[in-house]
């Protein structure tokens, strides 16, 4: 049984699980835990989604506010709060990208903060800031945006340039391939992260973890970039 916590049931006083007392089965007030702990999972990124789903449906049934129609006010409101947290936790963890982003937030990695700090450091030291998006990808993005702008103007004028469409189509394919490749890159970092969780607090683990988290952030950033661009391309082609 996942999620054994170490506080006592408000009703019978014995030790309880996170959501229900293991002894008398009463629903418990929600405790401020992260979504992994909510489901009783370790903070790992390779997650057994079928186990997650099973656990979700089982808890959904038991926590459903309808079940507590006759219960006292406290229990009714706890079941409601727990149900709402359950839904948020499930939605976040089942999606691989949301799960990764959630872990990064949990571990205190803030993208925008990092970028701002890097700019401040560049200002103070005179060194060039390392761009999150690699230069060759930026070139490609800029070029494609120029083509898209051209395409929009042509469409407004009712003109049609097959060569431009072909160019954009090719760029789109290349971006979609990158998008796939980035997901695989992310999975490699998942494995590295999970390994470091298994290793516990051995020497050098903290530096290791920071490095893995930064790498994941980097991959997600590039992936978002590519995703937005593919979206823009599709919009420009459809309109």
């Amino acid at each position: 049984m996942p999620g054994e916590a170490t506080s006592s049931c408000w009703s019978c006083g014995t030790m309880r699980a996170v959501h229900f007392c293991s002894s008398c089965g009463k629903v418990q007030p929600p405790v401020p835990v992260d979504y992994f702990t909510f489901f009783g999972f370790p903070r790992k990124l390779n997650l057994d989604t079928s186990a997650l789903e099973k656990e979700f449906y089982a808890l959904s049934r038991r926590l459903h506010p309808d079940v507590f129609g006759q219960a006292d006010t406290r229990e009714r409101s706890w079941s409601l709060e727990q149900s709402s947290m359950l839904n948020d936790a499930y939605r976040t963890l089942k999606d691989p990208i949301k799960r990764t982003e959630y872990l990064l937030r949990l571990e205190g990695v803030e993208l925008e903060e990092q970028s701002k700090q890097a700019t401040e450091k560049a200002r103070a030291t005179g060194e060039l800031k390392k761009q999150v998006v690699p230069p060759d990808l930026l070139e490609e993005v800029f070029e494609l945006n120029m083509h898209l702008e051209e395409l929009r103007i042509q469409k407004k004028l009712g003109e049609d340039d097959p060569a431009l469409l072909e160019e954009i189509g090719k760029a789109k394919l290349s971006l979609e391939e990158k998008y796939e490749a980035l997901f695989n890159e992310l999975k490699t970092e998942w494995n590295n992260w999970d390994k470091s969780v298994d290793n516990g607090t051995a020497d050098g683990t903290n530096d290791d973890r920071r490095r893995i988290l930064d790498k994941m952030l980097d991959v997600l950033n590039r992936r978002n970039y590519v995703r937005n661009l593919v979206r823009d391309v599709n919009e420009a082609l459809e309109n």
Binding site: L111, S115, P135, L138, Y225
Partner: peptide
């Protein structure tokens, strides 16, 4: 200078 913001996908030259 060619830079980009992954938060929003902007690209600036």
């Amino acid at each position: 200078g060619l830079v980009g913001a992954p938060e929003c996908g902007d690209v600036m030259k």
